[in-house]
Design a protein around this nucleic acid. Structure first.
Lengths: 241, 241
DNA sequence: GTCGGCAAAAGTGTCGACACTATCAGCCGT
DNA sequence: ACGGCTGATAGTGTCGACACTTTTGCCGAC
């Protein structure tokens, strides 16, 4: 069937490199180096980089080197405003369109995860993703789903990866998620949208407060380009939005 | 400075072909044919087509031919829902962020255009675009601005190009625009967002009602691929959203 | 006459080489 | 010594050719 093309493969691998921190924010993407590394020609690499540019994970000008985006607080704010608008609206649609069965299933998953959260915080995070994703998909709007679960989701992961936001929001998130779901079950679209917006807004504040120092422009760390350094302090710490 | 690259050039030219109707919805984009036509190699054409895919103006699977998107009513609805969410939010931000001077200037432009609309309907449309664009830009959110004035704007133009929506909304639009602007001036963010949403929602209904028949799958018109036919009935009729 | 398989054609994916542009080091003049 | 200029260098943009996939048209079997 759809035999995966090399470009798609390289795209995924570059995403992994970015998520893993091997390509930290601000790192430059050298087409030939990447092509060598992945043992492919420059064509697929080019295409993958262009796609990353389309997702706004890398910034690029015509003849200049492509760079992984930096984590400016302004950009974080703008990203979360878009999430507020889009995911809030998706939540409204969900309140109008979800079937009772879907709501019940989501509620069940939320509760089941909450009891498990005490011992294993990790799976709580995964479930938080799951909650947001399921609400978004319930909007039945392919364009919104693609935007939130595709492009914006990548950026979100990147920001979370590099933010030192602590886990205190994990506990709060459950409560907020539950309130949102209750509003959906009550078919109160206005309330559901409002709650989702507040939820995301608070997550944004939490995240921006824990952003790393603005990439201290001291010229000491001049080695971020092609090497494989800067191991992640906490290799896989995610945070609840 | 930024010497335009061939890929950018081809991208723009393809946009023109799509807008002009020479590449109608559903037409397939042949890379070699386009490369010949533009007197460039397949590389730039490939890149341009990929960018069009990123903007969702063409749909494409790995080894299949790229096609200009079709105008399904569902897709129109989804597009306008995104506009409702995003542009409504932008309107809220505008109500909070616009300076009094900006508001006064926009009001002035709106009024000036209204008096001119009686004689020349064409410029009224351009001004409607201008109104929406200026409100969006007032959101100060680069991500929202890029989305609405970039990707989604292209789609909007395409839909309007192929919809037979009549001009009765032009008159109504002025009133609605004015109400929105009054809400902004009153710094009533909730009202401004709500009004903008209603405005866009009504425009969506108007547009979807006038969509062309769902590309009647009768096999009579098998000639839509590479030639240059199907002249526009009304070469440049735009419609107010 | 219709259906299924097969081979040619059309089209996209990938590659390596060449052309053009930006960056940086060193040189010259002041 | 400092600033501007000029090469060399690294990197991206473009090209034409080849490999792989899908589609299409044809042929024979049922």
């Amino acid at each position: 069937m759809h035999k995966a093309t090399l470009g798609d493969d390289v795209f995924g691998r570059l995403l992994d490199l970015i998520y893993s921190g091997e390509l930290p924010p601000g790192a430059e993407l050298n087409e030939v180096a990447l092509a060598e590394r992945f043992a492919v020609s420059r064509g697929p690499v080019r295409e993958a980089v262009r796609r990353l540019q389309g997702v706004q994970l890398v910034s690029r000008a015509p003849f200049l080197r492509a760079r992984v985006i930096t984590l400016e607080p302004t950009a974080v704010r703008e990203l979360f405003e878009v999430r507020e608008a889009l995911e809030g609206y998706a939540c409204r649609l969900a309140a109008e369109l979800m079937t009772d069965d879907e709501i019940a299933a989501l509620m069940e998953g939320l509760e089941a995860n909450n009891v498990a959260a005490g011992s294993q915080a990790r799976i709580s995070v995964a479930a938080a993703f799951d909650f947001h994703e399921r609400v978004v998909r319930a909007s039945r709007n392919r364009r919104i789903i693609d935007a939130l679960c595709g492009d914006l989701y990548h950026l979100l992961r990147l920001y979370r990866r590099w933010s030192g936001a602590a886990g205190e929001r994990k506990a709060i998130a459950y409560t907020e998620h539950r309130q949102i779901l209750l509003a959906i079950r009550a078919r109160d679209a206005d309330l559901a949208e409002s709650l989702m917006r507040s939820h995301i807004s608070r997550a944004a504040e939490n995240l921006v407060d824990h952003l790393p120092p603005p990439a201290a422009p001291a010229a000491d760390d001049r080695s971020a380009a092609s090497g494989r350094r800067r191991r992640a302090a906490r290799p896989d710490l995610h945070e609840c939005h």
